[in-house]
């Protein structure tokens, strides 16, 4: 029996005997109370619709169709900036004492000339470095590091500009610096070994003779 007609019959005859209905496990939809509506069954969404058409604030705002915003924005009161050609932009004021000038040759050019790069001396020899203190060696190392950074910057710029010659000179200068750095490490390594050997001797019980115990005196 159709549910609607059951409801109509029940209204007409003042209630239907529960006994007359099929058992609830066979037709659960017929067992409902007439006063309180049972579970809601509807084929549409029952969510409350937002005020207006819908809640989308940017509906019909399209960048493709150039609609512009629907409401004036906070920046709308300022005029749009006009693009300027790079030539018209005024030159930045150079900072003469900036630390980044360390990445450039002393004449403050964008890249060093092959003449400047080629005018370098030999690297420090190990014999010369042996006489230097740790402070001297350390400062020399950092001078080398700075110069290598400068050469790397110049190399980048030469490749960018497709300037031409200069790679050989830069490489030979870089090589001289690296030889100096290797020599510094060599000298430090020698000192380390000397210290280790001295320690071993001392641990074995050797004590160097002082000035008073000197055999010659």
């Amino acid at each position: 029996m159709h549910r609607q007609s059951v409801v109509r019959l029940a209204r007409q005859f003042g209630g239907v005997q529960v006994v007359e209905l099929p058992p609830p496990y066979l037709a659960p939809s017929l067992h409902f109370s007439l006063i309180r509506s049972p579970i809601q069954c509807s084929s549409f969404s029952s969510t409350a619709v937002a005020s207006g058409r819908d809640a989308n604030k940017v509906r019909a705002v399209s960048a493709i169709h150039r609609t512009g915003p629907k409401f004036p924005l906070g920046v709308s009161k300022y005029p749009l900036p006009k693009p300027v050609s790079p030539d018209a932009i005024e030159r930045r004021s150079p900072t003469p004492n900036h630390g980044l000038w360390g990445f450039f040759p002393p004449d403050k050019q964008a890249l060093s000339t092959p003449e400047y790069d080629g005018a370098h001396g030999r690297s420090w020899s190990i014999q010369e470095l042996r006489e230097k203190s740790w402070e001297d060696l350390h400062s020399l190392w950092w001078v080398c590091a700075k110069e290598r950074n400068r050469i790397a910057t110049s190399n980048l710029e030469r490749e960018r500009l497709k300037a031409g010659y200069g790679e050989y000179e830069a490489n030979s200068r870089d090589r001289a610096i690296r030889v100096t750095q290797k020599s510094i490490k060599h000298v430090l390594r020698e000192r380390w070994y000397a210290w280790e050997e001295a320690q071993a001797l001392y641990n074995k019980g050797y004590r160097p003779p002082t000035d008073e115990e000197e055999p010659g005196q």
């Binding site: 450039f104 050019q109 300037a163 031409g164 010659y165």
Partner: peptide
């Protein structure tokens, strides 16, 4: 980002020191 502004030097106009033509 640095505290002091720094402007790169201009690229050299005269490339005679690098002998660009001869190189290529």
């Amino acid at each position: 980002e640095m505290t002091e502004p720094f402007a790169w030097p201009e690229a050299p106009k005269d490339m005679a020191a690098w002998e660009t033509e001869q190189y290529y």
